[in-house]
Write a protein that binds this DNA or RNA. Structure first.
Lengths: 127, 127
DNA sequence: CTTGGCGTGCTACATTTGTAGCATACTAGT
DNA sequence: ACTAGTATGCTACAAATGTAGCACGCCAAG
């Protein structure tokens, strides 16, 4: 996974797709679309557009594979969520990040390694 | 504080100003602007525009007072943050809201009453 | 009085985001 | 070989957001 100095923020829709890809690892646009909760009601082309924007933003890699494009994360989940967690801690919870990290360790589906990575990322960045 | 069925989401900049007003209670545009961290580097008119958008969205009330407009929250902090907390719990932390609420009770600057209110709001809404 | 500030109500404009559709190319079944 | 069904690369477009500027009115200092 690469490290970028200035990774653009993820919009709401973009985060939704990243979550699917962080979970699945590598999928075609059609597969990603299939995993979207029906509740979204997106047109297939909408899914594709957001996917492409994620590629443009550097979050995903698009690899042609036997005629179809497969998308896969270039940015790890901790890296992708770091900014969001930081923002939440500073501007919503308004508390030290420690407690939040502990919560990730205890309640979330993040592996210990991911939590560790997230913790490091939050530590080095002060914004 | 009113209860709205469909309160528009707060954008990043809007949340920043709401935080100032939830803290101070009632301020003029100039005062709000003054409390903005220099780091923002906003023009005064930008602050005013965002303030007006908050009025339009129903988050703030604007009351003319001896020639100046004073802005004050119409929506309580728990109400304003509920949607954000919910989103964070479901889509970032991916865990039950309980732990997060406990964190607010323990680490944040929210009063017990506010935490209680937040908890209620998170409970009734499932999205 | 005259003028410099500050406040107010509008208007402006580039990006980002949400949400799609179209035309063309390729693939497997008939 | 033809055709129906996909996949792909573009293009589109409105609403939301970030970020300001302008013109006009009012008040206090000179």
């Amino acid at each position: 996974m690469q490290r970028r100095k200035e990774l653009p923020d993820l919009s709401r829709a973009e985060l939704d797709l990243m979550r699917i890809l962080w979970r699945a690892g590598r999928l075609s646009a059609r597969e990603v679309h299939g995993q979207l909760d029906e509740a979204y009601g997106w047109a297939y082309s909408t899914t594709r557009t957001v996917l492409e924007r994620l590629v443009a933003k550097g979050y995903l890699a698009r690899k042609p594979f036997h005629g179809v494009n497969l998308y896969e994360p270039l940015i790890s989940r901790p890296q992708g969520l770091a900014r969001i967690v930081l923002d939440f801690a500073d501007r919503v919870l308004e508390a030290d990040r420690g407690g939040l990290v502990a919560l990730f360790a205890r309640d979330s589906s993040m592996s210990p390694a991911e939590v560790k990575e997230l913790e490091e990322l939050l530590k080095e960045r002060k914004p």
